[in-house]
């Protein structure tokens, strides 16, 4: 449902501040722990939740997220259990948008129409499917449109002026600007270049622009929040979870609290009034 996304951004606009988007891998390191982390995210300052769907071959991700996906799969996470996690979350929270993020094959295997219907029912608001560029997402977009779900597109530093209209056409909710040409978890792009890109995409799309890839510290979140409508953090949160795990990759006493503490400090920085 794009309504939750739209009202989140209009609230942020009225407060004159940027939002904070928190990514984590669903089912990492196990279903119950992961669900508890998810439930804690809104209170820790996440305005939007990106719920990662694991895939065996995440070719656009760096090692941090790849390993999280493999841990999640090892604990028997399926697309259905990701949907269940969203359903459980919605029992206590009906405001925070949930965007699922992953790769095309598991969704394709379930069937686009079935996935869209199930996602809607689970209270999911949209999806980012990394390996479905605009040229290939027409079928999924049609299924999403039937259920008023947002299929969110990625723009990157390689998306030039000629290509930008193709990328923003038909997109809903917001546009996700990947600040560096590379995989997840790399260094953040230069702030001036990011600011220019955000402006360019916002003008072309008429939608809010969130910026991700490479934000690890409150300083970086604060800097991105000057220009972006929201700052996205993924690898740093996933890494905070990974650091708490025992030698068998199992949760310990700090696996829930550590990532939430990080989200609190990053979101506070992103939420500071713009200079």
């Amino acid at each position: 449902m794009t309504k939750r996304i739209d009202s989140t951004f209009s609230r942020l606009r009225s407060e004159n501040k940027a939002g904070f988007v928190a990514y984590f891998m669903g089912g990492d390191p196990d279903y119950d722990t992961s669900l508890e982390i998810m439930k804690g995210l809104p209170k820790a300052g996440a305005d939007i939740i990106e719920l990662g769907m694991p895939f065996t071959d995440p070719a656009a991700d760096g090692p941090v997220i790849e390993l999280a996906g493999l841990r999640s799969l090892k604990s028997k996470t399926t697309l259905k259990s990701i949907l269940k996690m969203a359903t459980e979350f919605r029992k206590e929270n009906n405001e925070t948008p949930i965007i699922v993020m992953g790769y095309a094959n598991p969704v394709h295997h379930m069937g686009y129409a079935e996935f869209a219907a199930a996602a809607k029912q689970a209270g999911i608001d949209g999806a980012i499917i990394v390996d479905l560029p605009p040229e290939e997402d027409a079928d999924l977009r049609a299924a999403f449109d039937d259920h008023d779900l947002a299929l969110i597109r990625l723009a990157t530093p390689t998306t030039d002026d000629a290509r930008l209209p193709v990328v923003v056409k038909g997109t809903k909710g917001f546009v996700y600007y990947v600040s560096v040409a590379g995989i997840t978890g790399k260094a953040l792009g230069a702030s001036e270049a990011v600011a220019n890109a955000v402006e360019r995409i916002r003008t072309a799309s008429g939608l809010p622009v969130v910026v991700g890839f490479g934000i690890k510290t409150p300083e970086q979140a604060r800097s991105v929040a000057q220009d972006a409508d929201a700052a996205v953090v993924g690898s740093a949160i996933v890494d905070a979870i990974a650091k708490t795990l025992d030698e068998n990759g199992q949760a310990t006493s700090t696996t829930i609290s550590a990532p939430l503490a990080l989200v609190r400090s990053l979101s506070a920085a992103a939420h500071e009034p713009r200079i």
Binding site: A60, A104, P133, L154, A181
Partner: peptide
Amino acid sequence: ENGRFGAFGGRFVAETLMPPI
């Protein structure tokens, strides 16, 4: 022209790779 052999083929890559391909 979209790289399709019937229902197969295509360009299923991350946006970063679309301009180079």
